[in-house]
């Protein structure tokens, strides 16, 4: 049997609105993935360290506060520094189209904006992680 996909769901920045992160974490778990939820107020350093220790294939970042342009590139930089570029980074939250395009160019695998379905997110992750 293949090893289940391991996902770190993280909530960076000062914002505490964790409804989305928790719903996604449950949905991924119900889809058979192993989910580690970091809890609130994680710095990019804490997130990348947790991803390393937990040996995850995917990091899901939930950001609603508008701080994505400061946080996400830092996470990508740290993954490069630690030679963890095989870890896929997906971002969910309030990310305007033009920022989403820029973040994808920098290496984010997918951005899920409000209204994205759980099914779409699960399917994307299944397709993005090599079996």
């Amino acid at each position: 049997m293949p090893r289940p996909i391991r996902v770190l769901v993280a909530k960076p920045g000062l914002d505490g609105h964790d409804r989305g992160a928790k719903v996604i974490a449950r949905a991924l778990r119900d889809a058979g993935m192993e989910v580690i939820y970091t809890g609130l107020r994680q710095t990019p350093e804490m997130i990348v360290n947790a991803a390393l220790q937990e040996d995850v294939q995917v990091i899901g970042l939930s950001i609603l506060s508008g701080a994505h342009n400061a946080i996400v590139p830092r996470v990508l930089d740290l993954l490069r520094e630690k030679e963890m570029t095989d870890v896929q980074v997906v971002v969910g939250g309030i990310i305007p189209d033009e920022d989403a395009a820029a973040l994808k160019r920098q290496g984010v695998a997918a951005i899920f904006q409000p209204g994205a379905s759980l099914e779409e997110i699960v399917n994307f992750i299944r397709g993005a992680v090599p079996a």
Partner: peptide, 22 residues
């Protein structure tokens, strides 16, 4: 904004990217 809500000044390291956003 979030730094104010969390009791940090605008020049605190954790306020990076969050000043005046929310």
């Amino acid at each position: 904004d979030l730094p104010t809500l969390m009791g940090y000044d605008a020049d605190h390291a954790l306020a990076e990217g969050e000043v005046g956003k929310c």
